[in-house]
């Protein structure tokens, strides 16, 4: 039985799905992630902080749009744990 884990924001700020406008998104639906992989960035106080995966599995949903404002505890993505 697979289990889905919600990855939540540990910081408030602006969520970014890619490192720069020209680069590929860190993850999209269907992507495989490992523990420690960067899955996005949260910008706050002019600092870009990596959002790091705490689980290994497959991304089943990206819950925020690029450059959305996020608050602490907001669900960023759902990962089906492998």
């Amino acid at each position: 039985m697979s289990q889905t884990v919600e990855m939540t924001a540990e910081l408030p700020g602006t969520f970014y799905t890619r490192e720069s406008p020209g680069s590929e998104p860190y993850v999209s639906v269907g992507a495989t992630v490992s523990v420690g992989d960067t899955v996005g960035l949260i910008e706050v106080m002019k600092m870009f902080n990596p959002v790091v995966s705490t689980v290994a599995g497959t991304v089943v949903e990206v819950c925020v749009e690029a450059e959305d404002s996020v608050d602490v505890g907001d669900v960023l993505l759902r990962v089906e744990v492998s």
């Binding site: 700020g13 602006t14 002019k46």
Partner: peptide, 8 residues
């Protein structure tokens, strides 16, 4: 008005 993320 909403506090912007770059506020420090």
């Amino acid at each position: 008005w909403q506090v912007a993320s770059e506020s420090d």
